[in-house]
């Protein structure tokens, strides 16, 4: 089976590794780089658990081949927090508002919402619901995720002011 050697930046660190051409970015991040924070649910684009940022934009890691990430910058849930001691405001708000139960959907929720709040720092609850419409959560019923996002948006606006 054909493989290629690829170089890419993940959470600020340069990596070089061999990737089978049919391997998607999600399996590469988890299996080859050991970054198991990115979760894989459906592997056909529907559940949103695998969402990561590619050059700052949210994408499905199950629908991008690892070889397509050559020379690009990936941010996974492991790369969201500003330091090992501090949480990203979204992570802190998810914690405080019970925005997660089993946590399976959480990496995809956080990466999707990180991009969303950059584009839309003062959203309505309705806009938050639409933004996460491609992320399935079987536990929370979404209300706590929406509440956490509204709180994180508030905190991020105050920090920027």
């Amino acid at each position: 089976m054909s493989t290629r050697r690829i170089a890419l930046t993940v959470n600020g660190t340069r990596h070089e590794a061999e990737a089978p051409v049919r391997q998607h970015l999600g399996d590469f991040l988890r299996g080859t780089l050991g970054l198991t924070g990115t979760h894989l649910g459906c592997e056909h684009g529907v559940c949103g658990a695998c969402t990561v940022l590619l050059d700052g934009r949210a994408i499905r890691a199950c629908l991008v081949l690892a070889v397509q990430a050559e020379d690009r910058a990936v941010t996974t849930v492991e790369g969201l927090a500003p330091s090992p001691e501090a949480l990203h405001p979204l992570q802190a708000a998810f914690c405080a508002n019970h925005g997660l139960q089993c946590g399976f959907c959480t990496p995809g929720m956080l990466t999707t919402l990180e991009e969303f709040l950059r584009d839309c720092p003062d959203p309505t609850e309705e806009e938050v619901r639409v933004a996460i419409s491609g992320n399935l959560c079987r536990c929370t019923g979404y209300d706590s995720i929406v509440a956490a996002t509204m709180e994180a948006a508030r905190a991020m606006r105050e920090a920027a002011a």
Partner: peptide, 9 residues
Amino acid sequence: IAHLPIRTR
């Protein structure tokens, strides 16, 4: 059309 991460690609 779909969701934000799918529209990006």
